[in-house]
Every structure is written in C-alpha cells, then in structure tokens.
Write a protein that binds this DNA or RNA. Structure first.
Lengths: 202, 202
DNA sequence: TGGTAAGCGGAATCGGACGTCCGATTCCGG
DNA sequence: CCGGAATCGGACGTCCGATTCCGCTTACCA
C-alpha cells in the first residue's frame, strides 16, 4: 500500500516532471488512435507501443485500462461540446444547426469506432462531469427551443426525445450502413411539425 | 484429422442417438438464455452448466463458440420471419403492420441482449441462409409497397431505407432508453408522406 | 555537479476463457 | 442380455491480454 500516484483524472493534478508530462500526452494520443480503430478491444500493449513507451508508463498515468478509456471518452465529450458551442449555437438557422449536430455525430462515428459508446455515456449521463452534462443539455435545449420558435420542429419534442436519435444514428453508422445520411434524413423528417398528427403525446 | 462430427448446422444432419438429441436441445436452450442475458460475452462453461451438461458435450454439438452463436442467431432470425409471415403480412392495415414489425424489434431487444446483433447480421446479410434473407426482403418489400399504395408511406422509400431503422431502434433499446416507443414514433413519422418535402431523393 | 525522488521499460505474473482429450457411461441392434 | 460404437463430463492445456514489480535512468534542485 502507500500508493496513490497522482489521481490522474483528466486534469493533471500536481505538476509532473517534464518527461512525464510529455509521455502522458503521447499515451493519450496513442490511446485515442487505438480506441478509434478498435473500440474497447484496443490493447494496452499496443497503446504503449504506439506511444513509444513501456506498458509500465501507461499504467503509471492510468491505473487501469478503464480509466484510460474514460479519459478518452471525456476528451471526445469535450470535442462534441466544442462543436455545439462554436458551430451549432451560433448558427442563425436553428434547424440547420440541429441537422448539423446530428450529422456531426455520424461523421465522428465514421472516424472513431468508440464514438457510439461516448454518445451513449453522454446521453445516459453515467458517471460524468455533471457540469459537462448540464451544458450539453442546455445547449441542446436552446437549439431545440429556437427551432420550435421558428416552427421548424414539432412543439412536443424535448431534449429527452432528441438524445436517442444520436444513439441510433451512431449505431447505424457503426453497422456500416453506407448511406446513413439517408437514414438521418428520415429522422429529421420525423422531427418536423406533423400535419395530420400534431401531438403524438404519449 | 479424420474428424468431421455431424456438420451440426441447425438442421440436424443424420439421426442422433436419443440422448444426444436431447442434450442438443438442452444446450440450445441454455445458450439461448445465456446469449440473451450476456450477448457475445456468454461463456461456454456457463452454458454447459445451465444445460446440466459437460463442456465436452457442448463442443461435440457445436465445435466452437461462434458456431453456437450462429445457431442462436439463425433461430432468432426464423422467429422474426415467423412474426412477419403470420402477423405482419396478413395485417389488413399495412401501416399498422409496419409499425408492429418495428415494435416487435424493440420488444425482442428488451428481452434479448443479443438481438441487435442478429438484426445487424440480417440487414447486412452476412453469411446467412440466402433463402431466409431473400424472404425477409420480400416480406418487407411487400408490406412497404402496400403501405405506399394506400398512401401511408412516402413513395421514395425502399427496403434499404427501412432496414437501418431496425438497427437504430435495437440499439436505442439496448442503450436503456426507457421510452423507446417515443423514439419509434419519431421514426414512423419520418416515414409518412412528407407534405412540404415530397421527394428527398438523394 | 551530486543526490535523489520521480519516472521509465518490459519481463514476469496473473487470471480467465476457449477448446482438447480420454476414461467412464449410455444407447441400441442382434 | 451383450458388445461396442456413440456420447458424456470435466480436468487440463493453451493462449492472450491486463496488471505488477523492480532494477535502471533521468530531470531537477541546492
């Protein structure tokens, strides 16, 4: 016992020795690549190799594979928030913004086999930085309300209805459906105000 | 070498000794239960235990875990086809039939953690009884065309557009979204003839 | 520059799942 | 009722990936 190396959450706790800090980044990069390619099947040994580092070093920074995976997920989460903040929220056309945010999810999934897992975690809100979750919901809610205000989205939808769309889309992409954008089109049409069926409440 | 135990595809090749036949069924049942609970993570040892049989027996009937999994998938596939044949096709209301077939998928997924995998395989048509795949497509196509004929579904949809819906839905259910039926509702609305946007071709 | 604690590398260890093997047991035709 | 072919059962071998351990190296400060 007597062992509690720097908690090593994403934010580096105390200062690290310069080489340690450098290695930490190399490991994160390598892990990002490995998880993107292989999802949870990525191997610690492989990550170490890609990082040009020994396994021991990987474990020094992230005590378990799971903790490393979490760090990657958190990073992807931030990337997603960034996109919403800088691209979707400022979009003058709320409907377009909403569509783009879904498309973004599909594109990410194409590049990153682990993205679906991230999305599921985000939506499920499981064990996450509460602030990040809150911001995500707030951003989504804002865009949704704006779109409803301009009449481009049905009135009865809430954030809780939109979240699952991301999950479904990611997995459709993951399953290798080549023109997932067509699927996305169907989803989007389902969000439009429905003429004959104005309020599918319940 | 010199070994090629009864090919052991789903249809029992030659006659089995009575106890062997009995055990084969016990194994299949146990496997069904195990895969339903744990998906691909189900363990051979556990399956044997549930079946009240030694691992050796399991391996006698299914030379690898994968072959056992395939048998289960094939079984689920047949169940699905049965549902389409007996419940959806005869439904006088094609739209209702279509909706029910999607709902069926959600319900199966709730009961069976491995169902999404089955659906993905069915849709991808990977390594499957070609006849079964053909029937699946034909059934779906028939229902879809009927619905289009009565004007309840947009004209531009094809089987290829509908299949991904199943994949997405399964995974939404799998992710634990409690009211996935609401998600299903959005999907279905997206299938309706779209007033302002009649032909999202491309 | 020397001392030293922080870091490093990677061989060795652990654990656990699949699949094999073979002696014991059970069906079934004659 | 018998003999042996077909089956069983489950201990054991194999493989593979995560994690640990520890002697060696290096950054950093007085």
């Amino acid at each position: 016992m007597s062992n509690t190396p720097p908690p090593s959450g994403t934010p580096t706790g105390g200062k690290l020795r310069s080489d340690a800090a450098r290695n930490r980044l190399k490991v994160l990069d390598a892990a990002r690549a490995a998880f993107s390619e292989s999802g949870q099947d990525a191997q610690m040994g492989d990550i170490a190799r890609r990082a040009g580092v020994g396994v021991g070093t990987v474990y020094r920074h992230f005590p378990t594979k799971e903790s490393l995976a979490e760090a990657i997920v958190a990073h992807r989460f931030q990337e997603t928030l960034d996109f919403l903040r800088t691209e979707v929220l400022p979009d003058p056309d709320p409907w377009h913004g909403l569509a783009r945010s879904l498309e973004f999810c599909g594109i990410m999934q194409e590049k990153d086999r682990g993205y679906a897992e991230t999305v599921t975690a985000m939506v499920g809100g499981s064990g996450f930085d509460a602030a990040a979750i809150a911001e995500l919901n707030e951003l989504t809610d804002t865009v949704l309300k704006r779109a409803q205000a301009e009449g481009s989205v049905r009135e009865d939808l809430t954030v809780a209805d939109v979240s699952p769309l991301y999950i479904g889309l990611c997995h459709v992409v993951q399953a290798g459906v080549p023109d997932w954008r067509r699927y996305l089109g169907i989803l989007l049409d389902g969000l439009r105000p429905q003429p004959g069926r104005p309020r599918p409440t319940d």
